[in-house]
Design a protein around this nucleic acid. Structure first.
Lengths: 307, 307
DNA sequence: CTGTTAGCGCTTTCAA
DNA sequence: TTGAAAGCGCTAACAG
């Protein structure tokens, strides 16, 4: 603003007043087209209804907003099969994408990585990919849980599995397999489950009949559904059966009984994802990949077996 | 596609193959500019971390996706004061906006309504506005809760308030005032609270010392925090003190004790919001406004007072 | 330093 | 029926 000459202030004022009078507002769209950037990023999750992902979304959105970015959300729950198409479509609408726990295969992921860049991965890593990734050590987390149950005296466990395509489910299975190797006296059965409270509820009967004394649920949602189902069936938790979760969602400490689980810092995941993304966008070197180690949270849903 | 002449199929094929070879993909941005529409809508909430809003977001996003629309999320929690600016900014990025429980004043809302159109309101109505709205009858909901407590024998209640600017908080207060008018024998105190579990936790001491035999929390989140705080202080719920929530979030049935509350169909709100929005966009007449009536859900956090 | 113009990548209208 | 051109509303590079 050059104030040395006549009229500047007046002109500016008049322009502004006419602008408001005409209700002028710049078109973000045209600006984006000219600039070649939308200042929006996509966040794609397998299930927007899951509190664990909501926590990430909430912190990601807040962090991005501080830098003037908005987030476009997409839920691939409906049809995991065309997750690649969904991801690619939404990527065209914005500058970058944060892929959270994608269900697609490694081959598919690697194949589309270039076209998605800038890309940040949450809950998924692949050495072939240059994309920054934030992940959780599910293998050690589930082993901490199994060890906790072992220490209480449980020798027969049942794992209520998550979605079959889920990489994080595979990691839990691998962790459990390793645990079984280390502890030859333990027996760990597998049972199909899912990722929601309803899946946990549905698993209650089979879990009760499994002969196991403790159940490891895929996540807190499943655990809470299972807890409820078990109680409805007259199975007391933890007296008759111990139950563990995974994630430590806010409500894990408020369930009845409170849930023994491992905590995953989902807010941090969201915030860190944005930091990586911001670096990528501005051409800086993103921070190193982080693998969060879940922390065991012993509450009241686990106890020594009766016998 | 004209198949009558030579080469068409071949040409199309070649074009396609070259297109994929060059990794061509249409620019959604340019398309939007030319078409004058982005196929995206905004969803603005006062707190993205609240499960009640997440449920709406989840269903809104799913419904919109079916029609090829994406949703851009924004959380106005940070600074309720410039909610108008935030809303206006995000509106410029997309075709329409769903305003959920806006904290802004009626005057502000009415003033910007035109510039926001197409607009759908959730949890807020204003007769001056043409915008479709989906709302919840908080007045009757809170009265149902108060009546339930009255029927149990409670005569001294305390209401742990929500955010002061929140219209839904005001409606609850109005409902309570009406209840007090109908039931002269009741005493209802007010206590400042908030909208989160932390706020509920913080209110535990004051609630215990209030002399009331039952507490009505602004929402389930607050109620669950309060529940926990009370128990930590050695106050038994419901024996020493009854507690009620509002919303019936999924976890209300899993808390310890399970929470007496009124249920609000948040998934329906999200889905219906999209239907209204879709009609608005396509120029059809949107369905009539709906006012959902919360349904009392009596669980274990309420009982007759001891004395 | 100010003002003009080309161009972002698409759609659509209008001539050929 | 096909192809060229104008224009969406902005930014950035360019002359003046």
């Amino acid at each position: 603003m050059n104030q040395r000459f006549f009229g500047d202030a007046t002109i500016a004022e008049r322009v502004l007043s006419v602008a408001t009078e005409l209700a002028y507002s710049p078109s973000h769209l045209a600006r984006s087209l000219a600039l070649g950037q939308t200042s929006a990023i996509a966040f794609v999750v397998p299930d927007l209804a899951n509190p664990a992902f909501q926590a990430m979304l909430s912190s990601l959105s807040k962090a991005a907003a501080k830098d003037g970015y908005r987030v476009l959300v997409a839920d691939s729950a409906e049809s995991p099969r065309d997750e690649p198409a969904l991801v690619s479509e939404i990527r065209h609408r914005c500058d970058a994408v944060v892929l959270c726990a994608p269900r697609m295969s490694d081959a598919e992921l690697v194949a589309m990585a270039d076209s998605l860049s800038p890309l940040v991965l949450i809950n998924r890593t692949n050495p072939k990919l240059g994309a920054p990734s934030l992940s959780v050590d599910y293998r050690s987390g589930i082993q901490d849980l199994a060890q906790h149950l072992w220490d209480l005296g449980h020798r027969h466990l049942v794992f209520v599995e998550g979605p079959a395509e889920s990489v994080s489910n595979r990691h839990r299975l691998e962790g459990l397999a390793e645990f079984a190797r280390r502890m030859p006296g333990v027996r760990i059965d597998r049972m199909s489950g899912g990722a929601t409270s309803e899946d946990g509820l549905a698993a209650a009967g089979p879990v009760r009949d499994s002969g196991a004394t403790a159940a490891l649920a895929f996540n807190d949602l499943v655990a809470i559904g299972l807890l409820n189902g078990l109680i409805q069936l007259g199975v007391r938790v933890p007296e008759d059966m111990s139950v563990t979760g995974f994630d430590d969602i806010p409500f894990a400490r408020f369930s009845a009984p409170t849930l023994t689980t491992v905590s995953v810092p989902n807010e941090d995941l969201g915030a860190e994802a944005w930091h990586r993304m911001h670096s990528l966008i501005t051409g800086e070197t993103p921070g190193a990949n982080i693998e969060f180690h879940p922390r065991l949270e012993v509450r009241r849903s686990t106890a020594a077996p009766r016998s």
